[in-house]
Write a protein that binds this DNA or RNA. Structure first.
Lengths: 212, 212, 212, 212
DNA sequence: TATGAATGAGAGTTCATTCAT
DNA sequence: GATGAATGAACTCTCATTCAT
């Protein structure tokens, strides 16, 4: 029988405990340095069980992160399907929604960040491309809508604009998720909401006024 | 005798070869996946020698990266000491100078990126704080100069502004250093110079116009 | 209740399928490398069932091979009960009958060959002795009949003769059962019948005397 | 540095102990069932050392058996280079020389026998072909010499003859090397020398012609 | 009776570190 | 000072066996 099925037939609580513990281990140590031994010891289950469920270490990681990817995308979809035509309102909502997600799933987000700069994660190309594409597609549509509706300057370079928003987006998320990165500098003392609004304002003025 | 002294008494060329090879290994594989075996084999020196020089793997890394930190800071100092009063000109110069540095020291920059999101690097806190502080101090001074000279809006939140410029800065560097991160989206096809100018323009409009 | 009884109460077809699949697995991989997992997966039955039937891996093997031993002996009995008095005709018939058996039960014969030189098979001593004794008893009677009837030299050493015939017998069987053992040398291209006749002739005349 | 070199630089005594212990383990348990743990524990050396010497389990086996192959061939070469023209004398010498070899290297010979009937040995094809070819080439030359010099019948089928001698050869060796295969039947009680002579005589005269 | 999830000892393998030469 | 052989803890992974359902 499909062994992954075995895992999915487990009681919900146990399944969540396993995924959660494994996620934490990968978040703390990255892929190669994460230890199956540590995971099963903390969980109090047999080593063999984990391998029954996922085949091998890579299988566990792929299951766990593939699962996370779809959750990553949820907030964005919700925003895009909003019928509000206001560009900056949607941007701000996006900031907040993504921030909320990374704050409630800090381990997943830390895995993502590790993966970004560590070439050794399995399926790294596939996963990163998937995330990147989703983000870009989402932002591009927002920008195009904004230009079409006259809220943004007609002469904006869409590539650059998407790239810039994306950059600020990323940094915004990072600053509120990875605690040890804040060393008393930067605006991290402020609330998520304040920061989101301030950044939206900054974008507002950069993107709307025509240059002389 | 202080064993690190042993290393510093080595012929310059040998010292450079060792640091260079070790840097490449850490850049390629991160800290834990980097292999002392690989390094000494490529160098053709005895394993024991490396441990004599640096005590252990961590000692090697700390020596190597501590050495690099000062180089990291060079481009910024050069800009700050420029007497040009034009804010956006200095920003653009900073983009270009940092871009030039990361392009000429790709291994160091890749170590930095890995370290950013991997908690397992030795002395990570210390090193990152040092880099971050230098950057922030530099940008803060630029922004304050810009406001004082009337080139920037008086009502700018300095923390947010520094943070935002820093974000775009980082993303700008990443996009020109980590090749596999570009998946056909984003403005990566453009030249370093074009991109620097475009981002500066975007900042110019976001930071100068007063809101209504 | 005797758990092996459970197995014998199974429908004939299922019992045969189980024995057949297990035999194939042991023939392919020997005793220790044979995998209970593989067997039950191919059969589509529960792992626990197999252990209920046979207690453990060794029990399965002993049941299966003990069952086979009696089949091994069949061809020899048939020859011995032939009343033909011609020694070499009976030898040739034996060659052919055994060859036919190993060709129709290749898995059993491969298990036998593996067992011959692998001390780790369970009940190896018992099984091999049983097979060897049956063969020797059969050949010894043929040789004694041959001497008594004047077809063989009176001064033959019976032990040596039986041993020699046995040797050629074994080699003959092996050459037609284990395909990968022939590497372009030896007479393997010939048919079973041709080979049987040639070897019988060789036994008849030896290497020096010219045939009439 | 070439790690196998490390092994070859070891003191002779240690090298022999390692090879001997490993050979015994493979002889006792075959390839897959042989345990590196057992070997290093019996030797009292670190597990890592064995892997330094040979890379992995397969490397150990290949080194060990490849080394043995050349030793296997030595006795045959010695016979072939003998200028004695007497066919049966050379055959008898071959029996004795090979018997002496397998008796003084019983573990190697047991590995060979296991390999013959177990498909899972690494490099099995290569090793077996090498041994088989050497034997066949040797016997073929003896038979051809025997026919040319008139000692053997002109009409002998060389393939069949070589095959038959080979068969008796193999069985002869087996009977004197694998102790547990003798179950009170067969001529194993006799000395190596007696058996060799008896089999040579049998080959000389066949089973029917009375000796003069 | 039949099931298949859980187990855990043991497998092969890696690698930073030590230390006698 | 330089060497590299030796170490052993830790790693991922396997599989016969058990037992609650």
């Amino acid at each position: 029988m499909n062994p992954q099925k075995t895992f999915e037939n487990l009681p919900d609580e146990k399944r969540q405990r396993i995924l959660s513990e494994a996620t934490r281990e990968f978040a703390d140590h990255g892929y190669h340095q994460a230890s199956i031994n540590t995971i099963v010891n903390k969980l109090g289950i047999a080593k063999g069980s984990l391998f029954k469920y996922f085949g091998n270490k890579q299988g566990l990681f792929e299951y766990l992160f593939g699962d996370a990817i779809s959750q990553f995308k949820q907030p964005l979809k919700a925003i895009r399907d909003t019928d509000s035509g206001d560009f900056f309102q949607r941007i701000e909502k996006s900031f907040l929604a993504s921030g909320a997600f990374t704050q409630s799933h800090p381990h997943l987000y830390r895995i993502y960040l590790k993966m970004l700069f560590n070439e050794n994660f399995p399926l790294r190309e596939k996963f990163l491309t998937e995330i990147r594409r989703a983000h870009d597609k989402f932002l591009r549509q927002l920008v195009e809508d904004g230009i079409a509706s006259g809220q943004l300057r007609k002469d904006l370079d869409i590539d650059i604009t998407v790239f810039t928003i994306h950059s600020i987006f990323d940094r915004f998320l990072q600053s509120h998720t990875v605690p040890t990165l804040d060393h008393g500098v930067g605006p991290s003392g402020q609330s998520l909401e304040d920061l989101a609004q301030a950044m939206t304002d900054l974008l507002r003025h950069g993107l709307t006024e025509s240059p002389n």
